[in-house]
């Protein structure tokens, strides 16, 4: 398995929206490298013909009827907003449409 570089940590920081500081890049690179090195053992079973388990429950088809439940009031919905305007959440300028 390849080691985790400082650049990779910076990339992970961007993907996960963390404005990492310089010293964090080195520190995390070292720690993530150690952790990945240790957990990479799971790939020992990679070749085995074992189905993956993403969830411990054997349930399927849990659904609810299409019935309206009370919503929060707009005041409740906005009660913790760092900023609001015109009964909407006010956020800094958004870069580009996705």
């Amino acid at each position: 398995m390849p080691g985790i570089t400082r650049e990779e940590v910076a990339h992970l920081g961007r993907l996960s929206r963390l404005e990492l500081k310089d010293e964090e890049l080195d520190h995390f690179a070292e720690q993530l490298d150690a952790i990945i090195g240790a957990v990479a053992r799971v790939s020992e079973v990679a070749g085995e013909d074992v189905p993956p388990t993403s969830h411990p429950l054997p349930l399927t088809n849990v659904m609810r009827p299409d019935q309206v439940r009370p919503s929060l009031t707009p005041e409740q919905a906005l009660s913790s907003a760092p900023a609001q305007e015109q009964q909407r959440f006010k956020v800094p300028q958004i870069l580009g449409e996705d």
Binding site: V62, M63, R64, V68, P70, S71, Q87, R88, F89
Partner: peptide
Amino acid sequence: GCSTTLGAEPNSQTCPTCLGLPGSLPVVNE
């Protein structure tokens, strides 16, 4: 279970789940 009626007042048809509040969970609409 929030209503989908069009033209409602802003943020009047929201709940912990569709606002993504911590702890909220989804349940599928049949």
